[in-house]
Simulated scan of single mutants.
Amino acid sequence: MSSRTVALLLCMACLAFAPAQARDAYRIETVAEGLEYPWSLAFLPGGDVLVTERVGRLRLIRDGRLQPAPVEGVPGDIHVGRQTGLMEVALDPRFEENGFVYLTHAYGTTPANNTRLVRARWDGERLHGARVLFDALPAKAGDSHYGGRIAFLPDETLVLTLGDAFVLREEAQNPANHLGKLVRLTRDGAVPGDNPFADRSDAAREIYSLGHRNVQGIAVVDGQVWASEHGPRGGDELNRIVPGANYGWPLVTHGVDYTWARISPYTELPGMEQPVVQWTPSIAPAGLLHYTGGLFPQWRGDFFLPTLAEKSVRRVRLRDGAEAGQEVLFAELGARIRDVRQAPDGALWLLTDEEAGRVLRVVPVAGEANEEE
């Protein structure tokens, strides 16, 4: 084999394994840093951005700069633990009319706590009139598995993700409580009359789906709810959510316990939904975005999952409801990624899950075509 042939083969190998940055031509910019475990963000009309810190603070980014003082009006009874505290921030579908902002946080104490949904009014500087809309029950011990993400359906009801409390995983199969469930509520916290369990006396009327472990990602695409879920050691999932359906945990799983003990011999059972995508070993998906922007046309229609264990963002492409390819992005950051959001201009924003966490912005490299090959 000639030296020229060897060089050509080496060049082809380099292209085949080129980093995502070279293939997709993006640049990562730092918007803000020094946030303590940032968890979620929301883009306000006019360009301001709200960011939650897990330790119980809400922060404001204005004119591209993190304001030094936390936002006032956040509930003062937030329970902060190893995996929880202040979590989601989201704007009402009619925010420009009513100024409503939704927050999720843990309530209670370490021996007795769970997830709470709160609504307050934003006046451009602070929150007013924080009101509890929903408390997940029962209150449980420990500081693990809270869910905490919300998304709005086309009818403007909302779906809230919840966890199984880790130590009470069997309760994910019990329709009488909220552990290991998705719940659907009106924007005032009431139970919609067409919820799948609304007419059952033996079930929690808020339940939208059950059999979940810890859902920390949710997106609504053309009215269809999608959710990403933490498995144990393996068995992370991307699910298409059917109202009233059972997603199997802990009777059905591709994962094993952290002790390597088998949780269940079954990866499927009759009457229980299968994931569209599952990851073993675990990547630890902490959020979910369906990209619709114009800055990266080659990504349009794909799902993006920020990961804690893999320290990346997984890009997942589906075709006809089935996986059609994946890509690992932003691993060069070497950081646990807690959230990924699409900005109004089509840029991706990332939050790093660190004691000195960062808000990052992903934009195309100037002059690049960014077209899918």
Results as ranks from 00 to 15, higher is better:
Ala324Glu: 11
Gly73Asn: 05
Gln224Ile: 14
Ser3Trp: 14
Val80Cys: 14
Leu179Lys: 05
Thr30Tyr: 08
Ala322Phe: 12
Val242Asp: 08
Pro232Lys: 09
Arg300Trp: 06
Glu156Asp: 15
Pro111Asp: 13
Thr352Ala: 02
Leu58Asn: 00
Pro154Gln: 14
Glu327Pro: 08
Ala227Met: 06
Cys11Gly: 13
Ala69Thr: 15
Arg116Asp: 06
Gly231Glu: 02
Ala32Leu: 05
Ala16His: 09
Glu72Pro: 06
Gly321Cys: 14
Pro38Tyr: 06
Ala261Tyr: 13
Thr104Glu: 05
Leu91Lys: 01
Gly244Thr: 00
Leu289Val: 01
Ala106Asp: 10
Gln216Asp: 05
Leu182Tyr: 00
Met1Cys: 13
Gly85Asn: 08
Asp353Tyr: 12
Val242Met: 08
Thr115Val: 08
Arg300Asp: 03
Gly180Tyr: 00
Glu88Trp: 04
Arg23Leu: 07
His290Pro: 06
Trp39Gly: 05
Thr110Arg: 12
Leu9Pro: 10
Trp279Ile: 02
Leu153Thr: 03
Tyr107Trp: 15
Leu179Met: 13
Leu348Pro: 01
Arg23Trp: 01
Gly99Leu: 10
Arg94Val: 15
Gly287Tyr: 01
Arg65Ser: 14
Leu9Asp: 13
Asp155Ala: 03
Ile28Leu: 10
Leu308His: 08
Asn177Val: 00
Glu268Val: 11
Leu210Ala: 01
Leu179Arg: 02
Pro297Ser: 11
Arg59Asp: 04
Arg233Ile: 00
Ala16Asn: 10
Trp349Asn: 03
Met87Leu: 14
Arg200Gly: 06
Leu91Cys: 04
Cys14Ala: 13
Gln274Asn: 09
Leu333Ile: 11
Leu60Cys: 09
Ser40Leu: 07
Glu33Gly: 13
Leu350Asn: 02
Asp353Ala: 05
Phe197Asp: 00
Leu10Phe: 07
Pro75Phe: 07
Arg200Glu: 08
Thr157Ile: 11
Glu372Leu: 09
Leu305Gln: 10
Val101Pro: 02
Trp122Pro: 08
Gly73Ser: 10
Pro138Thr: 01
Gly321Val: 15
Val225Ser: 02
Val215Gln: 02
Ala227Pro: 07
Gly129Ala: 15
Arg116Val: 09
Arg65Phe: 11
Leu60Arg: 12
Trp260Val: 14
Asn114Phe: 14
Arg240Leu: 09
Asp339Cys: 13
Leu289Ser: 07
Arg315Cys: 03
Ala42Glu: 04
Leu329Pro: 00
Arg23Val: 10
Leu9Arg: 14
Val256Phe: 11
Thr161Val: 08
Val242Gly: 06
